[in-house]
Simulated scan of single mutants.
Amino acid sequence: MAEGTPIKTVVVPSQCWRARHVTRAVEWLFVAACLLPCLDTGPGVVPSSPGFVDFERGWQFGLVILLGGWGGGNNGVPWSANVFLVAGVYSLADGRYRLAVALGFVASALGLTTWWARPYDTIMIGYYVWQASLLTLALGAVWVLRRSPPAQAAERDNGQLPSQELVT
């Protein structure tokens, strides 16, 4: 390198604190929903094989639904909200706030299809906490977008500015 040539340094700014707080709130709500009962599928029955649980009856916890809810019937439509939730959280963390808003509202709408796929009297507290995580992403991303500098938000959403690094 020739003398007198300026060295470009990469500065990684701290992530927007608003986006970080919204992301954490979504994560905490989602984890809480996984630990709570989400659906009541009727009275429990004795498993047909010793040591195995029958997932067709009884309370269904969020983690069980997350791991196996995508398969079969109409369950895949509400479950697909999880895909949009994850994409929205990554978009928010990456500084693509407009995309995070859109993904958050799509996730919320897909989560509401649970009312179409399941009878209302089978829905339990875990579902509402999960839906709160979806709405927190959507509304939190709107809040972050409205509070971010307009030029910066537009440049990041158009792909003109690297999301995590600035060259000075």
Rank of each mutant, 00 (worst) to 15 (best):
L103Q: 11
C34P: 01
S91F: 06
W115D: 01
L92R: 10
G111I: 13
A102T: 07
H21T: 14
L110I: 04
I123Y: 03
C34H: 06
V26M: 04
G71L: 15
V45Q: 11
A100F: 14
L110D: 05
S80A: 09
V46K: 09
N82M: 11
V45T: 12
A25D: 09
L66D: 10
I65Q: 14
R20I: 12
I125Y: 00
C34A: 07
D54C: 04
L63W: 15
S48H: 07
G88V: 03
G71Q: 15
S108Q: 12
V26Y: 06
G62S: 12
C38P: 00
G51F: 08
R57Q: 14
Y127R: 04
G62L: 06
R57D: 01
G42H: 08
L103Y: 02
Q60V: 11
V26T: 09
G126H: 06
W79E: 00
E56A: 15
V86I: 13
N75L: 13
Y127G: 00
T114Y: 12
V53K: 12
G71Y: 14
G73R: 09
V86K: 05
R57Y: 06
F55K: 14
L39F: 13
L66A: 13
S80E: 05
W79D: 03
V46H: 03
W59Q: 09
V26G: 01
A93T: 10
V86M: 13
A117K: 05
V86D: 07
G44V: 13
T23F: 15
W59H: 12
W79G: 00
S91W: 01
R118M: 11
L92I: 11
Q60H: 08
P43H: 01
T23W: 15
V53T: 10
N82C: 07
A109K: 08
T113V: 10
V101D: 01
V22W: 03
A109L: 14
I123K: 01
H21M: 15
A32V: 05
L66P: 02
Y97E: 07
S91L: 09
D54S: 07
N75P: 00
L99C: 13
P43T: 01
L112T: 06
F55N: 10
H21S: 15
D121I: 03
L92N: 09
F84M: 11
S48R: 07
G73V: 07
C38F: 00
V31H: 06
G76M: 07
Q60W: 09
L29F: 10
A93E: 11
F55C: 03
R96G: 05
A33S: 08
G126P: 02
G58F: 05
G111P: 06
G51V: 02
S80K: 05
Q60N: 10
A32F: 08
G71C: 12
A87C: 10
V101E: 02
N75G: 14
A33C: 03
G69W: 08
V106W: 03
G62K: 08
A87M: 12
L92G: 09
V45M: 07
F61P: 05
V53R: 10
I123D: 06
G69K: 08
G88R: 06
G69M: 12
P119R: 02
G71R: 14
E27M: 13
V64F: 13
V129W: 05
V129R: 00
S80I: 06
N74F: 13
T23N: 15
A25M: 08
W79R: 00
A100G: 12
L92H: 10
L110P: 01
S108G: 14
W79C: 01
C34M: 13
P119W: 08
V101C: 10
E27G: 04
P37V: 09
